[in-house]
C-alpha cells in the first residue's frame, strides 16, 4: 500500500522536474528572441533617426535581395516606424512571457520541494 503511494509520488516528482526543465528551455528561447528584437530595435531606431534627418528630396533605396530599389522617403520613414511598433509589440509580448515563465518556475520549484519532503517522510515511515 505504502509502496504504491511512494511510487506514484516519485513519478509525479519526476514529471514535475521535467516540466521545470521544459519551462527553463522556453525561458531561454524567449530570452534569445528578446535579445534579437532588442538588437533590431536599436538598428531601426538608428535608421529612423537618419531618415528623419534627411532632406525631402533625398534618394532612399532599400536592398531587396541583391538589388537596390528606390523608395519614397515618406514611405520609408513610415515603414521603419511600423517596424519599430511591431518590434516593441513583440518585445512586450516576450516580456510578459518571461514574467509568466519566472512565476510558473517558482511555483513548480516550491511544489517540487513540497513533494520531495513528502517523499522523504514516506521513505522514513517505510523504513521504521
Amino acid at each position: 500500500m505504502a509502496d504504491t503511494k511512494l511510487k506514484a509520488l516519485e513519478q509525479s516528482l519526476q514529471a514535475e522536474a521535467e516540466g521545470l526543465k521544459a519551462l527553463e528551455r522556453d525561458g531561454q528561447k524567449a530570452q534569445q528572441a528578446q535579445q534579437q528584437f532588442i538588437q533590431q530595435q536599436n538598428e531601426n531606431q538608428m535608421v529612423l533617426k537618419e531618415l528623419e534627418g534627411l532632406q525631402e528630396d533625398s534618394a532612399v533605396y532599400k536592398l531587396i535581395g541583391p538589388v537596390l530599389i528606390k523608395q519614397d522617403l515618406v514611405e520609408a520613414r513610415s515603414n521603419v516606424k511600423k517596424r519599430l511598433e511591431l518590434i516593441s509589440g513583440e518585445l512586450s509580448r516576450i516580456d510578459s512571457q518571461l514574467k509568466n515563465v519566472a512565476k510558473e518556475g517558482q511555483r513548480k520549484q516550491q511544489q517540487g520541494m513540497k513533494m520531495q519532503q513528502e517523499l522523504q517522510k514516506l521513505q522514513q515511515a517505510n523504513r521504521s
Binding site: 531601426n44 535608421v47 537618419e50 534618394a59 533605396y61 537596390l68
Partner: peptide, 12 residues
C-alpha cells in the same frame, strides 16, 4: 550611397 542599416541606403 550610405548603408544606414536595416537594408536601407541613402544617397548623400
Amino acid at each position: 550611397l550610405i548603408d544606414i542599416g536595416a537594408s536601407y541606403y541613402v544617397e548623400r
